[in-house]
């Protein structure tokens, strides 16, 4: 652990990864609670695939990656909700449809513009070396915006998640808050994708919420627990990946998996005891 702390102070790429990672983990955990409960778990996964497609296109065009990817993914989030609301194509099918299409377009664009290079590999599985100083500022800014908006609308998002019909009947504009949720998720996914990888970022959204639901009984309890858990798992995963030399994104996911199994066991035990 001491070796990791030493490394943190001497390598800027590590401290950058820590700052951005902690913020993204926090955002993802909070949003994840609503997404999992609304049965929108796959939305993070779908959006990350769209993010990959957008990055591939941005690379080919030679434009700024984040500036290009964020609007595209936000648009995809908007589309996803619209499609799943009109009931003709169910939500999960809509996500699968958009996700695989975006991935396919990304792969085609990449192969046309010079083949699978190291950049693409790092977008799929993540790299902690990917963050430039400008990326760090942008990521921190966006994460703070996501956190503030989420906290401001916390009670309304709860109401819309628990019972959309009731919320709408009492004058809450449910559609607006669903959209807010999707847009915040889109931003979080794009910001976190570079470090965690397009294929792994959705775990950051889903795991902490599912894990804390094993033991927590109130909504606020679940929120606080998944926020803390998500940050702890990220830091442990980052440290482990540095010390053992494994890929960061994958290591963070495995740490999350271990904590999920632990919490599930505790939840089971408590049920048996009662």
């Amino acid at each position: 652990m001491l070796a990791f702390l030493n490394a943190l102070t001497s390598y800027t790429f590590l401290s950058r990864a820590l700052i951005v990672g902690v913020l993204v983990a926090l955002c993802a955990a909070l949003l994840g609670v609503s997404l999992v409960l609304k049965r929108y778990s796959m939305i993070g996964d779908g959006l990350s695939h769209v993010g990959f497609g957008a990055l591939a296109v941005a690379l080919a065009l030679g434009v700024t990656l984040m500036a290009f990817a964020i609007p595209v993914v936000v648009l995809a989030a908007f589309l996803l909700l619209r499609i799943s609301e009109n009931n003709k194509i169910k939500g999960d099918a809509a996500i699968a449809l958009i996700a695989s299409s975006a991935l396919a377009i990304g792969v085609i664009v990449t192969s046309l513009s010079g083949g699978m290079n190291a950049d693409i590999n790092s977008y799929l599985f993540g790299s902690i070396l990917a963050m430039s100083e400008g990326d760090v500022y942008l990521s921190v800014g966006l994460s703070v915006v996501v956190l503030v908006l989420y906290l401001l609308f916390y009670h309304r998002l709860f109401a819309v998640t628990f019972d959309e019909t009731f919320a709408r009947a009492t004058g809450t504009r449910a559609g607006l808050y669903n959209m807010l949720l999707a847009i915040l998720t889109a931003v979080t996914v794009v910001v976190g994708m570079r470090m965690m990888g397009a294929l792994l970022i959705s775990s950051l959204v889903i795991f902490p919420a599912l894990t804390s639901m094993r033991v927590c009984r109130s909504y606020r309890g679940v929120m606080v627990c998944s926020a803390v858990l998500s940050v702890v798992c990220f830091v442990v995963g980052l440290a482990a990946s540095y010390l053992v030399g494994t890929p960061t994104g994958a290591t963070v996911v495995v740490v999350n998996l271990v904590s999920f199994l632990l919490f599930a066991a505790v939840g089971r035990l408590r049920k048996l005891v009662n």
């Binding site: 409960l37 709860f158 109401a159 019909t165 004058g171 809450t172 927590c216 009984r217 109130s218």
Partner: peptide, 28 residues
Amino acid sequence: IGYLPQQTPVQRDFPASVFEVVLSGTLG
């Protein structure tokens, strides 16, 4: 209007305290 809808499957295993649920009625 105070509305009591039919329960949805989502609610049956929703982790929320009773107070949190009741309080959400004042949102309007």
